Computed example of a mutant assay.
Amino acid sequence: MNSLENARFDTVKRLFAAYVAQHPEFVDPMLTRDFTFSSPRDDHINREQYFEQCWPKEKAFRDIHIEHLVADGNDVIVGYRAEKMDGGSFRNVELIRFAGDRIAEVNVYFGRHL
């Protein structure tokens, strides 16, 4: 593994930690200016919409456990298990595309509830 892959893995881990801790201000500098986010519910929304629509207003997650982290060129593929505050949990996969050391695009693929 090279140093760029290590840096990108670290960025992904910090992204998820900030999400659990509800600190979007930590994530903003990680993103490119033309960042987009897509999921089955969102189609290429911009960074402003991402922070408005995708960041919970109240603490929603007890923890997120990264189970798979794979580098493929400019992409990092992450599989994780999320534990919700209400006791439920689910698994998702995300493809996170980088431009240099910043996140340019996130594509979320919803998993199943556990």
Rank of each mutant, 00 (worst) to 15 (best):
D72K: 13
Y50G: 05
V76T: 05
M85Q: 14
F51M: 04
Y19P: 04
A60K: 09
K13C: 03
A99Y: 07
L114V: 10
D72W: 10
G111E: 04
R62G: 12
F9W: 06
E83K: 13
R81T: 14
S89Y: 12
A104F: 02
F90S: 04
T36C: 04
F37P: 00
I64L: 09
R81E: 08
N74G: 10
L4E: 01
G88D: 14
F90H: 03
H23S: 10
E83P: 02
E105L: 06
H68M: 14
G111F: 04
Q53N: 15
P24R: 00
E52N: 12
E83N: 15
F98L: 00
L4M: 05
N46K: 06
Q53K: 15
L31F: 07
P40L: 08
A60M: 14
H68E: 15
V12I: 05
N107W: 11
R41W: 15
G73M: 07
D10T: 08
R97I: 06
D86R: 06
D75Q: 12
V20D: 00
G79V: 10
P24G: 00
E105V: 04
E83M: 14
D75T: 11
R62F: 11
F98W: 03
L4R: 07
S38V: 00
N74M: 07
V106M: 11
E94N: 13
L95N: 10
D72R: 15
A82F: 02
D63W: 11
M30N: 03
D63T: 10
I66R: 07
A21V: 05
E94L: 00
V106N: 01
E25G: 07
T36N: 02
R112N: 13
N2K: 01
L69D: 06
D42Q: 15
I103F: 06
F16W: 08
R112V: 13
F16L: 01
P56C: 01
N2G: 11
R14W: 04
R97E: 08
S39T: 00
D10P: 02
R97P: 06
N2R: 07
Y80Q: 10
D10N: 11
G88M: 13
V78R: 01
V20L: 04
Y109S: 15
R102A: 07
F51V: 07
L95M: 13
A104I: 05
I77M: 08
R14G: 00
A17D: 08
E25I: 04
F16A: 01
L114S: 14
H44P: 08
K57V: 09
G79S: 13
W55T: 09
F16G: 03
L4D: 09
K59C: 07
F35Q: 07
Y50S: 07
G111L: 04
